[in-house]
Design a protein around this nucleic acid. Sequence first.
DNA 1: ATAATAAAAGACTAATTAGTATTTTATATA
DNA 2: TATATAAAATACTAATTAGTCTTTTATTAT
Lengths: 146, 146
Amino acid sequence: MLSNASKYAVRAVLFLADKSDASTKYSAKAIGEELEIPVYFIAKLLQQLVKAGLVSSSKGPKGGFYLSEENLQNNACKILHEIDGEDVFSHCFMGLPRCGDKNPCPVHHIVSPFKDKLMAKFQKQSIKELSDEIDEKGMYLSLKDS
Amino acid sequence: MLSNASKYAVRAVLFLADKSDASTKYSAKAIGEELEIPVYFIAKLLQQLVKAGLVSSSKGPKGGFYLSEENLQNNACKILHEIDGEDVFSHCFMGLPRCGDKNPCPVHHIVSPFKDKLMAKFQKQSIKELSDEIDEKGMYLSLKDS
DNA sequence: ATAATAAAAGACTAATTAGTATTTTATATA
DNA sequence: TATATAAAATACTAATTAGTCTTTTATTAT
Ligand code: SF4
Ligand code: SF4
């Protein structure tokens, strides 16, 4: 459903949401190593997100990626859309040729509420809120010590 | 999550469950056209399922694919496993390096029950039961007239 | 100024998935 | 027994996704 790319991107952004700010930046190398994501790959993804205005960055020594207060207000859905395209959640499980509520496939009543919940999660909550929840509930993005 | 291949395969098998028996067979061509699946592709998939004992077939004129009474007793999960491999449902949403209930990712409490429900659906119900349910509830596998 | 640092840009290679086409083999029926 | 039919086997091509590498540009600190 989600590509590796968008999974990596979400994890990286949530990491930055938790750890970074305008004066505490992380290089692609640091992020890749911390989250066990191929370094060159996450670099490319983060650059794409910067271009889309979802992540901030600065070049040079002491430079790196971070989330501004503005960035934190976006919802996580935007990341998925930026990386995987607008129709991440629209094409779905059984892939019927012309499917929908009128012509439900065998798993529609399982898949449909799941999609709704997930959408709500990623759409209604800002990155900041999501990140706070992760902190509160003691969830992990990386399993390196911590 | 599911490949095109396994989606196609499940739809084709459920079609055969509904329409075929030992004396009413369908050629790959007929199935492909009915379900709007590339003919050569579904042929290859069905051959794979025959080899795995999940579908029956016979060659020659009046030959084709069908489900025997025995085939109908299998659960749909076996199809997914045959086509996509054993770990279709095991690697999941956020793809954390070493994830699990102890180290839940941000969407674990949404994804996990969904996976459970889906597994139950595909594992506990036989293809026959699933097919009957599809009939009862008026669900569609194809949208060609009907 | 210069050296070191790190993102930006872009050009790659590799792997996987999707889909197509050709040849061979079995079988029903005329 | 010849012919037509359809699966089986196999060898492809194409497209997408994943991942790597190199060069350029901006910035900070020495
Ligand atoms: S019927 Fe529902 S679950 Fe099935 S493919 Fe369509 S949207 Fe997805
Ligand atoms: S924590 Fe749960 S939802 Fe998240 S990747 Fe692991 S199994 Fe999937």
